[in-house]
Nucleic acid binder design. Structure first.
Lengths: 248, 248
DNA sequence: GACACGAATAGGTATAGACCAGTAGCTGCA
DNA sequence: TGCAGCTACTGGTCTATACCTATTCGTGTC
């Protein structure tokens, strides 16, 4: 990914642009865990922005747990936590990063369509209402990990109609382009057997065990809590375990 | 509490002093939930400090959840919200009840043994230390649902040595007899294929998909947080789905 | 070789001022 | 009366600068 020009897009605050830039460097593996970032003053010079602005971006990323910093030493890319303290709603890429893996995506299908009765029921919209359906093959370190079919409300995702969804985080686009804030999701997990087509894409034998996950995501959109996304994923069970922490 | 003079104590950063001051006002009930704080510029004047310094203090308190703010409206004392745990640590019987089913149990094995190296590693105890191992077939409405092998620390569960574990809740006995309080557990879920023995007990065909769950339970015992239990369960995937709620 | 010291450099705190962007209430016109 | 638009707030973003403190490492002394 080429460097996003800071100041290039006046619609986003500079500190947000810098955050995204750093996130991209980390997601792409360009900045590996443990690596020291350029110093704050260096970043100011590089991008021609004030130090307080740099600090705002860095502070947010530190709060997110993506970076750590020590006075006198520097700012570093955090080593992925082995265990997430709580059950967090994450994107595939974030999930892989937490596991110390590099996530990548192949877009298999991206289509604007009319909601089927089933989809309409799940998303609580009218039958025939526009939805955006995306099918993606998710890989970790280059090896197939999961097959994912997402269906999103068409009205909310209208700005993404002609967006490249292969190389960008869908959740990031939703938040940045659609004015959506991800809130929470409910997931159901069950075991299954890989079908013919799935098996071929996931590069496993037909009949191999897979973990099927259904997710319904609730977002804040135009001040309202609405169901926005329904995802059906099929994970290779030899490569993926779902981890969750429960409290009494 | 009397107002702490900002600048009075040079040993603490001004923004920290302001944070404490606001916290005190809220704790003392002086500023009730829902009340609007003085505007940032007003706080600058009142305490003779810069707006960026005020903002740093306020931002930290917002991140803490103590305050909320809206552009154009102001900064407000947050209404304390009771957070219900997203995922609850439950016993099998409780889980079934939540699903509207009647859980029952058949005890297959109950044995005091010495910890194998694997078990010792998981429970963080010495190899050869005493453990209590229980294998139970769990049913819902009379139909087999899961096969469960629990391994518990022998020293903690000593009072249960000759207890009837077929008709009593293990978690209840742990709390009532062993002076243990269940705290939380981490679980890992994966898909698998039923083996011969499993299939026979679960009354499914060998090779049927199953959901395998590993649980490590943390308890409070004699004032210490300790790992007490390690459970491996195999659930029929045609009857059981795991449900979890995630937050962003 | 061991250690004290200081320079260079990292992030941490704080200032003062500027302008942008939402919100709400007031004013005055239709 | 109803409402469009103005205005005086609010927090949001950003700059430029200054000095503090912690870390690191090289230098020089003993």
């Amino acid at each position: 990914m080429t460097d996003v020009m800071i100041h290039g897009d006046r619609s986003l605050p500079i500190y947000v642009q810098l955050e995204n830039l750093v996130r991209d460097k980390i997601d792409s593996g360009d900045w590996a865990p443990g690596i020291m970032l350029p110093s704050e003053r260096q970043l100011c010079d590089t991008y021609g922005i004030a130090r307080m602005t740099v600090r705002q971006a860095i502070s947010n990323l530190v709060a997110e747990g993506l970076l750590t910093r020590t006075q006198g030493r520097g700012t570093f890319v955090a080593r992925p936590r082995l265990r997430q303290p709580l059950s967090k709603l994450t994107s595939f890429t974030e999930d892989m990063r937490d596991r110390g893996l590099l996530g990548s995506t192949r877009l298999l299908m991206q289509e604007q369509m009319a909601a089927s009765p089933e989809i309409a029921a799940v998303l609580a919209i009218a039958v025939g209402a526009p939805v955006l359906q995306i099918q993606r093959l998710r890989s970790a370190n280059g090896h197939p990990m999961a097959l994912e079919t997402s269906t999103l409300r068409g009205d909310i995702t209208a700005p993404l109609r002609h967006e490249d969804l292969e190389h960008q985080s869908l959740y990031r686009l939703l938040e940045e382009r659609c004015g959506v804030r991800m809130l929470r999701a409910s997931q159901e997990l069950e075991a299954g057997i890989a079908g013919e087509a799935e098996a071929r894409l996931l590069e496993v034998a037909p009949g191999a065990p897979v973990l099927r996950i259904q997710r319904r995501s609730l977002v804040l959109w135009q001040g309202q809590e609405v169901l926005c996304e329904y995802v059906r994923s099929t994970y290779r069970s030899d490569r993926y375990r779902f981890y969750v922490e429960l409290e009494r």
